[in-house]
Design a binder for these strands. Structure first.
Length: 613
RNA sequence: GGCCCGAUGGUCAAGAGGCCUAAGACACCGCCCUUUCACGGCGGUAACACGAGUUCGAAUCUCGUUCGGGUCACCA
């Protein structure tokens, strides 16, 4: 991070320039101007005697200070810590060299957003073992705040294992850099605003909404850049008397930064993800303290991230455009700016156009969606990791058993533009995750999910959990497990035929119903539960000749013309009888699990249907 | 509209002037394995937005066009 004009002293380039311009433009009334000049002379004299450098710097401070000092006292007539005290209260962190301090700063306006989770994950991965990842609550907009908003967010973060080291945690506030809720940091913000006012870097503005709308309209009709800057900054040069008058009249006001920026000059920011970003300097006198005394995001960001000693500000890239404001703020406050990393948002396809995933339109925007669908937390995190880093998947294949946190995450390698949310990919990732779970884990998870999100299903499966576990034990725990389940909600359909006999939806075309009937009739005569799958299969083979089906698949493949079908086809018929589908886990296990009687009933039922047809 | 940013298959992406006849993953299709269903293995379809320039040589650097995204509040 760098700024095109360095600031070596307490007073920056903007201030110097502004003072001279104001002087030249005669914005300062006549007598004070003379007074200023007189004082000026003295200072200049001093400075020349001293060391002869930075004459104008000292003079600004001395001359205008009186009014500003008074203003500050009037505006902030309360006991406030000094900024020096605050600096001492929140000293630089004692961490290993190169350790990173990151944070996620959600506002409690609803549920946890997928984007917030994503950013939080990147923050936590960046902080790693040595660093600190903390949660700060940005509740500076009281209008949008909702009840339980903070809890929603923290619970969500914990559910997905993106647990903070500091700030808002499950155990309440933790850490020495708090409070971590902006609504509780009023004095801190006001202390810094006061300091700014003292330096002439901030001033009260009494413009009403209507005033602002009017200037905006004027600007628009003249095709000028809109905003509160330069000559449009109506309250910028109010005299102390004028301000007092309005204050006495009880007019509400905001505090604005007195910007020293020049729109024709550029700032350069080295973003960790996007690289070099060049933008015009900020020249807007934007609001730093709202009329309710609460700071805006911009101001809170500068103060909090400085005081909380954040080293890496990782946030959504919708913030890129306010970077000039933040840079100027850090400079005005005399803070060292943190490193920035702006993450591209997760997008959605909407009518062929990409757009940011939206709370209103997309169920996936709320992480609660993934919870209610029954995606294991780990699946969502794994998926988010694949989006965050293209190297993650390769690493995962090489290290199937390690935790995602062991992956060496490099935020610099993140994609510059937004990725489309890919449901199919999520399902694939999740199937892999679930396929590695053991039966016990799956059973418990499904039970837990169903209890919360599908009562009927829960009633059904909780009656006999051993049976349920039996279902999930089939083909599980082997070297290459099946991948039937992407989410717990899938379990309902997946387990359905274990509980109720399936409907009959027909045979594949190449199997003649008459043949099927012959085979099945023979089969029910001999069916009995066997001790092994191979014995079970032998039974199928034994029945085959009844309809001239070939018991040997290889032989059948070589001479299909000699047969009506193969033992493979017959097993499909049985599968359809038992499960109602052509695709299921190991049939032998299923039949064993549902029991001989039920198996025979299902087969008999299909025989009847086929004969009636 | 101003200001920023971006553009490689349907999707996510590797790619840093010659290793590019452009990797890998998802999806799709085919084959193999297999006692069925799967799992797995192998293979296939499919991309450098367009136009100039720089260069012996461009997916890669520059400019322009087009398209896409973000942002322009007393919201974060």
């Amino acid at each position: 991070m760098s700024i095109s004009r360095g600031t070596k002293t307490g007073v920056n380039y903007y201030q110097k320039k502004r003072f001279f311009l104001d002087l030249l433009r005669k914005k300062i009334p006549f007598w004070p101007r003379i007074a200023l000049l007189l004082k000026n002379i003295v200072v200049i004299y001093f400075k020349i005697c001293d060391n002869g450098i930075s004459i104008e710097i000292k003079f600004l401070r001395v001359c205008v200070m009186n009014d500003y000092l008074q203003l500050a006292e009037i505006l902030f007539n309360e006991e406030l810590p000094t900024t020096q005290q605050l600096e001492a209260l929140y000293p630089p962190r004692d961490l290993k060299d190169g350790a990173k301090v990151t944070r996620v700063a959600p506002s409690p306006t609803g549920y946890l957003h997928l984007g917030t989770l994503y950013v939080a994950l990147c923050c936590k991965m960046t902080a790693g073992e040595d660093g600190v990842f903390y949660v700060r609550i940005e509740d500076t907009d009281k209008k949008r705040e909702i009840d339980g908003g903070v809890k929603n967010i923290i619970d969500g973060l914990y559910y997905f294992g993106v647990t903070p080291d500091e700030g808002y945690t499950a155990n309440g506030e933790q850490g020495k850099y708090g409070p971590y809720k902006q609504s509780q940091r009023g004095k801190i913000y006001r202390a810094f605003v006061k300091e700014l006012v003292k330096k002439g870097l901030a001033y009260p503005c009494f413009c009403t909404e209507q005033d602002l709308a009017a200037t905006r309209e004027g600007q628009e009709s003249r095709k000028e850049r809109t905003g509160y800057y330069g000559k449009y900054a109506a309250c910028r040069n109010l005299s102390l008397e004028q301000i007092k008058e309005k204050l006495d009249a009880g007019q509400p006001y905001v505090v604005r930064l007195r910007s020293g920026g020049d729109e024709s000059r550029k700032i350069t920011v080295e973003d960790l993800i996007k690289g070099k970003i060049e933008m015009p300097q900020n020249d807007e006198d934007f609001v730093i303290l709202k009329s309710d005394g609460i700071p805006t995001y911009h101001f809170a960001h500068a103060v909090d991230d400085h005081l909380m000693r954040t080293t890496h500000v990782i946030r959504g890239d919708e913030w890129v455009s306010s970077l000039p404001k933040h840079i100027e703020l850090f400079s005005a406050l005399g803070f060292k700016a943190p490193k920035y990393a702006h993450i591209a948002p997760i997008m959605k396809l909407d009518n062929g156009n990409k757009r940011k995933i939206s709370k209103r339109k997309d169920p996936e925007a709320a992480v609660s969606y993934f919870v209610s669908e029954g995606y294991p937390a780990q699946s969502v995190i794994e998926y988010l990791m694949t989006v965050a880093s293209s190297e993650f998947e390769v690493w995962r294949r090489q290290n199937p058993t390690l935790k995602h946190a062991d992956f060496k995450f490099n935020i610099k390698k993140m994609s510059v533009s937004g990725a489309l949310f890919d449901h199919e990919k999520l399902d694939d990732v999740s199937k892999n995750v679930i396929s590695k779970f053991d039966a016990e884990t799956v059973t418990e998870a499904v039970l837990k999910w169903a209890k919360e999100y599908d009562k009927d299903f829960y009633e059904k499966i909780s009656a006999n959990t051993a049976f349920l576990k039996g279902i999930f034990s089939i083909d599980r725990g082997v070297k290459n497990p099946r991948k039937d389940l992407a989410k717990w909600r899938d379990a309902k359909d997946f387990t359905r035929y274990f509980y109720v006999a399936p409907g009959f939806s027909g045979l594949p075309e190449h199997i003649k119903p008459a043949d099927a009937v012959k085979l099945l009739k023979e089969y029910i005569k001999i069916y009995t539960v066997r001790d092994s799958q191979s014995e079970w299969f032998e039974d199928l083979k034994t029945v085959c000749p009844a309809a001239n089906y070939c018991p040997d698949t290889r032989e059948y493949r070589q001479n299909p013309q000699n047969y009506n079908g193969s033992v493979g086809d017959f097993s499909t018929v049985v599968r359809i009888c038992i499960t109602g589908r052509q695709n299921s886990p190991d049939l032998y296990s299923i039949m064993k699990l549902i029991g001989t009687e039920e198996s025979l009933n299902r087969i008999k039922n299909v025989i009847r249907i086929l004969e009636e047809a």
